[in-house]
Write a protein that binds this DNA or RNA. Structure first.
Length: 484
DNA sequence: CGCAGAGGTAGGTGTAATGA
DNA sequence: TCATTACACCTACCTCTGCG
């Protein structure tokens, strides 16, 4: 564990302890007491405040300045600023109070509906195992170091860098990405963090964490039984009639149906030769040449479209599967869900997601992997040395070069085969046949916008390097199409 | 040992949209 | 307007863990 990570852990632990010490039975706590607690907590804010963020005080408590130094305009500005900070603090305290209430009662306050929706989207579009507390602490205390990090990333990495240092940089980079995503998704977060104290941060973290966990649970549940239905489409005669129900503890390597889906695509021939022997090898803990056989980097067969898969080309047919995002009714439709379909709209419709990102795909893959295995409680590790966290990272990494042909083809496929009918989405232009005038104008318009954005990016590039990850979709950044 | 909280599951309920 | 559909997500309940 890196030094910085230990510092985060210590801060997180400290936050938890400081919260637990004065904990009272929440149900018996009268509303007034809770209000008092929230407002009194704002004082402990001082402990965490950085030097760059002076403590705003009401004008009456500010030390008097020498009369000669007082500029009338400045004085007026100070009063305005202090009022503004007081106003923000008040609003924040109210919001945190509601969150604390929701945390305690498991209710959903209507005033926080947007926070609730965005929080549920975190697991789905940023990281299924995000620890909001760690990310927020990182952002609050390390945001100033971002520039230094980016300078360091920009310099040629020293070959003598230890793997620990590399891990540390990777972790920081991931935390930075998650923090920036949170800023995009959670309303007012940047402003709130500036004035938020330790306890408020903990309440917000718990609020986000509860919703991340629930969204993950709900999505897993909705996939659980659908998975069995999809098996009948494997195309292999022996696997076309799976049992209607396979209990969770009988999945994984305990039966051929789920085992074949978990088997690495590259090892399917070996699996088909003797499925029982293959399963035994995995469950006994693969050794020697087989040690890495089911490591996350050897992508399991369920991630492939078996009609396209080609042993000579490991990426062919990869990541073209069914959709969590457009609902089960869409899984067998050529262009995804129809625009006009009875029933409550699925996730992609609700959040206006009109394309996938590496992270939404990785999230879905991880959930499916878990639903196929025999574990009865959610864990990232599984028999045979498999690690779900690695699977997530490996899939995100597949898209690290957005210019690669595979990356473009895969995202194009998702655009046309799954998200083609999302309302309000730009319809992809037909690749064959003459373009209409509107098509030509649209292409010109897109090209002009792209050129303008590229120019703006290059202007900013000195002061601010772009995050390497693809943009996370959110309600605030809807309709961002991948650059392909 | 009891309590509280975290993390999980199953099943019921709510709801947005369609179409008669 | 109302029945139907197909989904999201809420609720109740469970187990496990940490703490006093």
């Amino acid at each position: 564990m890196s030094k910085r990570q230990r510092e985060f852990e210590a801060l997180l632990t400290k936050s938890k302890k400081s919260k637990k010490t004065p904990r009272m039975p929440p149900r018996s706590l009268p509303v007034k007491s809770r209000t008092d607690a929230v407002s009194s907590n704002t004082n402990s804010n001082d402990e965490l405040r950085t030097e760059q963020q002076p403590i705003p005080q009401p004008p009456s408590q500010q030390a008097p300045l020498p009369a000669a130094a007082i500029n009338a305009t400045q004085s007026s500005d100070n009063i305005q600023d202090a009022r503004e900070v007081r106003r923000r603090r008040k609003k924040l305290a109210k919001r945190i109070e509601l969150m604390e209430h929701d945390n305690r009662t498991d209710e959903l306050s209507p005033a926080l509906a947007h926070y609730h929706d965005q929080a549920r989207l975190i697991a789905r579009t940023v990281h299924p195992f995000m620890r909001p507390g760690e990310v927020l602490l990182f952002g609050k205390h390390a945001a100033d170091d971002f520039e230094k990090d980016e300078d360091a990333e920009g310099s040629d990495s020293d070959e003598s860098d230890s793997s620990d240092a590399l891990d540390d940089r990777t972790q920081r980079s991931e935390l930075k990405y998650q923090y920036k995503s949170l800023l995009e998704m959670i309303p007012n977060l940047k402003d709130d963090l500036e004035i938020m104290d330790e306890d408020q941060l903990l309440i917000l973290s718990t609020y986000l964490n509860n919703r991340v966990r629930r969204a993950r649970g709900d999505d897993g549940g909705s996939l659980r039984d659908r998975m069995i239905g999809y098996m009948s489409e494997s195309g292999i005669e022996d696997y076309k009639n799976p049992p209607a129900v396979i209990e969770k503890f009988r999945r994984g390597w305990y039966n051929w149906y789920t085992a074949r889906m978990l088997c690495p695509q590259a090892a399917l021939d070996r699996f088909d030769e003797d499925p029982d022997k293959f399963c035994e090898t995995i469950m006994a803990g693969p050794e020697g040449e087989d040690e890495n056989i089911i490591k996350a980097g050897n992508f399991p067969s369920f991630l492939y479209d078996q009609d396209l898969a080609d042993p000579a080309q490991p990426t062919k047919g990869l990541l073209r599967g069914k959709s969590l995002w457009t609902g089960p009714g869409s899984a067998r439709l050529a262009r995804g869900r129809k625009d006009k379909t009875p029933g409550k709209p699925p996730i992609a419709w609700k959040y206006k997601l009109d394309h996938v990102t590496s992270r939404t795909l990785a999230y879905t893959a991880m959930l499916v992997r878990y639903e196929l295995n025999s574990q009865t409680s959610f864990q990232t590790t599984d028999v045979g040395g498999f690690d779900g966290y690695d699977l997530f990272s490996e899939i995100v990494d597949l898209f690290s070069d957005p210019e690669s042909q595979w990356c473009k083809d895969t995202l194009d496929w998702w655009d046309s085969a799954v998200f083609a009918n999302v309302p309000g989405r730009q319809k992809p232009t037909s690749k064959s046949g003459p373009l209409t005038v509107a098509d030509q104008l649209r292409i010109e318009r897109c090209a002009a916008i792209k050129a303008r954005k590229a120019a703006q990016r290059s202007d900013r590039s000195i002061a601010e390097r772009p995050v390497s990850e693809p943009t996370v979709s959110s309600q605030n950044s809807q309709a961002v199409l991948p650059d392909n």
